[in-house]
Design a protein around this nucleic acid. Structure first.
Length: 590
RNA sequence: GGGGUUGUAGUUAAGUUGGUGAUAACGCCGGCCUGUCACGCCGGAGGCCGCGGGUUCGAGUCCCGUCAACCCCGCCA
């Protein structure tokens, strides 16, 4: 029977200076090389790997146990650290090895479904099914550690700035607007439901009314929407709210937090944090979360091409809200094949554009579809986008939203395939002054772009109810890094009158507003301090810090794109009795 | 809800215009091996070719449907 000993060192610790020390190590067998008379075992824990040697100097029992060991068995080794006959410069512990005098099996394993190795490329569903094995891989261990360091730094920084971490309810009530809610039936109140929070928005505002002054929380949020590479149904925010704060103060704190995290986790100085208005971002990049690590900026050619004889463009511009924009890929004329251009056309089509127009700028003339433009138009465009021979011009015309969506996706794609994106660089920017409302064609009403508690810019408050809602800008701000929105926030409405007018603009009458948000409206009537806040998408921040494009790499137990946990089997069925107790019947057939 | 990619041994992959026995590497099992670090050598076991239909004398291969994972659009205040 093996007796569990206390380890003296981790598997990452042994160095030449430990030579001669008696040690006890515990860990997983990472490699097993049985040469007959000598067995080498690499023992791994999350701190590193140390080579264990078992040969004629070891007692028979140890030699037997070492020979019987297999990959991923859990072993307890006692022995002496000695310098290696042949050091391995590729291992941090490679100067030494442990000459074992005791080799004990703590736990064996079933045959492994895949190799525990960073270059293992087993299918993701297999790895998610056996997440406990996948997480043993050093790369994922490292990601969890990075996540921990980032969260710890956030707590320490925010504490140093006078913030208090306050927990808000997970069982709360459904609110209209926003994402689909995850619902939890009430046992005690038949027919009533809790909702899991999409964010602690209302509670943190009420905490401001309650005098918390500076609140933060590392908090799970839940949204029942379809998933993406950077989206999970439950995700974590670093959520914060400040009383007596204007946007400058919130942005200052957010920059301070970002700087602290990047410095502490990566040793990198974050910043600068330039600012772009939403309008500027759309006009230069076609999206509100631009990757500013590279150029390929968009140019608006709508005015320039008014009245063009080029039928496709003229047709697009005649439509209400039709625009024409283009960007230049320097030096790409010669190296971009027709096939590539066809694939780029397909890409913009997925964003609703009819197609992509292009021209290769060669000495003195253009080739490609846009060569049919008039001479004057060509030279005006060339001047506008600063085209020089050898460049490739990519142009789209159509409804503004589609042109922006298509060309911003294309800008990113072209930058990737042409390797224009610098590695290991973080490019931050603030996007400010978002439109407060957008018209939802489906619902035939205005909806909040941010959320309904976002303050309009003070000078735009009078426009509420004027029929000019589309002109209202909000006092909101997003922090963007490398094309990812990593934080978003706003100054909030603290005047119940203004809040009521916003609800009215959103088509919620007094009764509906009171029913859905009455508790916030009521709180605002009892001495609400001016306040504002911001929430960081923590998982996305950690993705950036870890250098991964996949949110599942930074979450210990993530879900698939169909919101299943392949390890636990969630979601699962429940007993009829359990449903009955909750006053719920199952409408799903089969 | 829509589009795309993928699915063959425990794992990763090969498998040609449909044509004899479904192949390799790693892992697993057995044997040998005293300085390996991707140890090496010899031998062995292991298959619902995702699932269901169809075409065909014959399907891993062609067609239809379906399921799952991933990526994208819609959606995500």
């Amino acid at each position: 029977m093996t007796t569990l000993a206390r380890r003296t060192h981790t598997c990452g610790e042994p160095r030449a200076r430990h030579s001669g020390s008696r040690v006890t190590l515990q860990g997983w067998v990472d490699a097993h090389r049985d040469l007959g008379g000598v067995v080498f075992m690499d023992l791994r824990d999350r701190y590193g790997i140390t080579q264990v040697t078992v040969d004629h100097r070891s007692p028979p029992q140890a030699r037997q146990a070492a020979a019987a060991a297999r990959l991923e068995y859990v072993m307890q080794i006692r022995g002496t650290i000695i310098p290696r006959e042949k050091p391995n410069p590729d291992m941090p512990t490679g100067q030494v090895e442990v000459l074992a005098d005791s080799v004990e099996l703590l736990s064996s394993t079933l045959p492994l479904p895949f190799a525990i190795s960073d270059d293992c490329n087993a299918n993701e569903d297999t790895r998610l099914r056996y997440r406990f094995l996948d997480l043993r891989r050093p790369a994922l261990q490292e990601n969890l550690l990075t996540r921990h360091k980032a969260a710890l730094t956030a707590r320490l920084y925010l504490d140093s700035q006078g913030f208090t971490e306050v927990e808000t309810p997970v069982l709360t009530r459904a609110t209209p607007e926003g994402a689909r809610d995850y619902l939890v039936p009430s046992r005690v109140h038949p027919g009533s439901w809790y909702a899991l929070p999409q964010s602690p928005q209302i509670f943190k505002q009420i905490l401001m009314v309650a005098g918390a002054d500076r609140y933060f929380q590392v908090v799970k949020c839940f949204r029942d929407e379809d998933l993406r590479a950077d989206r999970q149904p439950e995700f974590t925010q670093i959520d914060m709210e400040l009383s007596f704060a204007d946007r400058e103060l919130v942005m200052e704190i957010a920059q301070g937090l970002t700087t602290a995290i990047w410095r502490q986790v990566l040793g990198v100085e974050a910043g600068p944090f330039p600012r772009l208005s939403y309008h500027q971002a759309m006009s230069r990049y076609g999206c509100d979360a631009p990757d500013t690590r590279f150029g390929l900026e968009h140019h608006d050619l709508t005015q320039l091409l008014q009245g063009t004889a080029f039928r496709i463009i003229a047709g697009a511009l005649e439509q209400e809200g039709g625009i024409c924009k283009a960007f230049l890929v320097p030096g790409a004329a010669g190296s971009t094949s027709r096939k590539t251009l066809d694939s780029w056309t397909e890409l913009v089509r997925t964003h609703g554009l009819g197609g992509l127009l292009w021209a290769k700028v060669v000495q003195g003339k253009w080739t490609g579809p846009l060569a049919r433009l008039g001479q004057q138009e060509r030279s005006a465009i060339a001047t506008s986008v600063d085209a020089t021979p050898g460049d490739l011009l990519l142009l789209a015309a159509g409804p503004a939203s589609r042109v922006h969506a298509g060309l911003s996706a294309l800008r990113l794609h072209v930058a990737r395939v042409r390797e224009l994106i610098p590695r290991d660089q973080f490019s931050f920017c603030w996007i400010t002054d978002f439109p407060a409302f957008e018209f939802d064609e489906g619902q035939q009403r205005w909806v909040a772009v941010h959320h309904p508690f976002t303050a309009p810019l003070p000078q735009h408050v009078p426009l509420l109810g004027s029929g000019r809602e589309h002109e209202i800008l909000s006092d909101a701000y997003d922090l963007v890094c490398n094309g990812h929105e990593i934080a978003g926030g706003s100054v909030r409405i603290h005047d119940p009158q203004v809040q009521s007018r916003v609800f009215h603009a959103l088509g919620l009458d007094r009764r509906q507003a009171e029913e859905k948000f009455g508790f916030l409206l009521e709180a605002l009537r009892y001495g609400a301090p001016p306040h504002g806040g911001i929430a960081f998408g923590f998982d996305r921040c950690v993705m950036l810090l870890c250098g991964t494009e996949n949110i599942r790499d930074v979450i210990a137990f993530p879900k698939t794109t169909s919101a299943q946990d392949l390890m636990s089997g969630a979601p699962g069925t429940v007993d009829a009795a359990q449903l009955a107790e909750l006053h719920v019947t199952n409408a799903a057939s089969g």
